[in-house]
Design a protein around this nucleic acid. Sequence first.
DNA 1: GGCGTGACTATGG
DNA 2: ACCATAGCCACGC
Length: 110
Amino acid sequence: MAEQDLFRDAVYEIVALIPSGRATSYGAIAAAAGCPHMPRMVGRLMSLSARFSDDLPAHRVVNSQGVLSGRGAFGPGDEMKDLLEAEGVAVENNRIKNWKTVFWNPLNEL
DNA sequence: GGCGTGACTATGG
DNA sequence: ACCATAGCCACGC
């Protein structure tokens, strides 16, 4: 039982808890999972999980600036942007507007 | 086991 | 606002 497996499970669970109309950052998830120094692994797990599981709302996970850095993993177009807007998140130029307000801190729920 | 790459972040010019 | 640098970790060749 490796710690990275626990980390993956924690990340999966946290992302699944993100409420509709909100979004969070890789660093926040990593911190909530107990590893604030692994934002890259979060992104890697997202890219892998996003393809295997549709249950994981990876479109609600963006970088610290509220930029949809992972839109490429969803499809050839701006599918991620469309998904976010469909949930009530305003997106402009691949960036979430009112990011400060849309940001959902997992630590606040945990 | 080394090297390059990547859905990251923070700092600095 | 844009680019460069440094740190971190996992995966594929």
